[in-house]
Design a protein around this nucleic acid. Structure first.
Lengths: 130, 130
DNA sequence: GAACTATATACCTTTTGAGGTATATAAGCC
DNA sequence: GGCTTATATACCTCAAAAGGTATATAGTTC
């Protein structure tokens, strides 16, 4: 069942934190790493899991791989992401993540414009702002 | 995190089916068994899991143990149960379960009044209507 | 008390997944 | 080509969980 696959993605704390961040806009792995404070392997493996289950998409931009929530979402996925957005803020750490994300997004605005709420198709400019 | 525990309960197909049924009212194990068509042990173990995670409550009535969704629910739980109710019907098997439940509830009305939407405190009367 | 019914638990096997260390790949810079 | 950065994969270990068989417990009926 489609729905079970969604819940399988949501039932791990790290993945929940990742999805919460992606609700705020696309992010590359190294920005996720910076915000979550978790080792790169761990994040990379959870992203693979999420991709295999259809919860995220990615595209490559220069050296970076940018992850985001899928553009086209099933009814179930939309409903659950809405629910997640509504609920996740009750978690202390999730709120801290979101705050870090906001700060990071204003810091990197213009430098890594493919990470964040703006949907640009710019090529990478210089180094990653991590 | 509270939220993760909820998703851990939702990420198994059998538990999802159980929770969907309990959204339609309390049920004893043997009625769950009849509707789901799964062995008693399997159901019993999933119910234990759900209870340990705070997703169901139970009370004993005669020979039976009646399971239901918790009377008091956290904001997260309420939101996710609502979401589940909204989404689960897209699953073929879940819809079939619900149909069976409806039939069973009308069949046992008055015989096992503690199973089903009515919240009575009647003592058990005779045999289980399984 | 013996038989029966409903439910739970013990014990086992197998699968899944999480996390870690080390290494590979891919693309950019010099 | 060699160095560096970003990301992914291989391989290992450990814990959790799923499902099955057999058995225990608790309460009912006779």
């Amino acid at each position: 069942m489609q729905l079970v696959r969604i819940y399988q993605c949501l039932c791990d704390h790290t993945r929940l934190r990742i999805l919460n961040l992606l609700l705020g806009g696309p992010l590359c792995v190294c920005h996720l790493q910076e915000i979550l404070g978790e080792p790169q392997v761990k994040i990379s493996k959870h992203l693979r899991y999420l991709r295999a289950h259809g919860l995220v998409e990615s595209r490559k931009v220069g050296l970076w791989r940018i992850y985001r929530l899928p553009a086209r979402r099933s009814r179930e996925l939309s409903a659950n992401l809405r629910c997640l957005q509504d609920c996740a803020a009750t978690d202390q750490q999730v709120r801290a993540d979101t705050a870090k994300q906001k700060k990071l997004q204003s810091r990197i605005a213009g430098v890594a414009p493919f990470c964040g709420p703006q949907k640009t198709t710019l090529s990478p400019v210089g180094r990653c702002a991590c």
